[in-house]
Design a protein around this nucleic acid. Structure first.
Ligand code: MN
Ligand code: MN
Ligand code: ZN
Ligand code: ZN
Lengths: 131, 131
DNA sequence: TTCTATTTGCGAATCGTTCGCAAAAGATAC
DNA sequence: GTATCTTTTGCGAACGATTCGCAAATAGAA
């Protein structure tokens, strides 16, 4: 593991929510080039250390977000107002995916799920939260 | 409804699977500019006539795909080899989403789900299918 | 340490998408 | 129908996220 890859994996692993490539580039602006960050993320994803999903929000545009692969595969909720993620817990789609792949004769290798809306805090406040 | 918007809605409505903005631009290359296609899609989505999701595949990159909103909200499977979509049928996530939004106090306004892998035909053949 | 394979930084390119602006098309009022 | 006001369009340029090519730096093996 090179220094860049170690830094990126540590950052993703210690984060409590998914981080975008852009956030990681900002975080390591002084240490690593953005191409290096992107390449480290590809490497780590190929190795199975991190996984990613693409999410669009009006405020931040379309970006890929990364989470460490520790324990069970998880899904996330993204708040449209404060832009924080909420962990929805371990994937509950195994049965559904098993059923549908049998019904339609599909070999499902991966799936993406996420939900968006307002988190608890943002439902209760009219103030604009930080981005 | 202008001519461009009508054309785009007709194309999306008559398609049996999601169409990307790029496919629509190609389809109407002689009639409408790509900016017009994108603007028509935004208009139709705002109006609730179509809905979209973003999907990445190694072959086609990251693109937004559009489907007509007729009847129940649906989800799709995308084959990594032949790049065709399979309709997974009406959304079966209502209970799950209800449970998780209650558990975590989230106001879920929308969700995205799709699966990828190999379709039935591609599991049974080693030949490369058309893109 | 020396040698070789791999990774990095830099800048430019790519791709999907969006913008600004002037011309064209629609809608409304005579 | 014509004048007038509003909306949409086409065009070209810009945009933001991501990727590329290549020479310099680094990591690993011997
Ligand atoms: Mn956001
Ligand atoms: Mn594809
Ligand atoms: Zn929030
Ligand atoms: Zn297939």
């Amino acid at each position: 593991m090179t220094k860049a890859r170690t830094h990126v994996l540590e950052a993703v692993s210690s984060a409590s929510e998914p981080l975008s490539a852009r956030q990681l580039c900002d975080l390591f602006r002084d240490d690593h080039d953005q191409a290096t960050i992107y390449r480290a993320l590809h490497y780590l994803e190929g190795k199975g250390s991190v996984e990613s999903f693409i999410l669009h929000c009006d405020c931040h545009g379309t970006e890929r977000y990364y989470v460490a692969r520790a324990g069970a595969h998880r899904h996330w909720f993204h708040c449209e107002r404060c832009h924080r993620f909420t962990d929805l817990g371990p994937c509950r789609f195994d049965d559904l995916i098993g059923n549908v792949s049998a019904e339609k004769r599909l070999a499902i290798r991966s799936h993406t799920f996420y939900a968006t809306g307002l988190c608890g805090a943002c439902q209760n406040s009219e103030v604009d939260a930080t981005h």
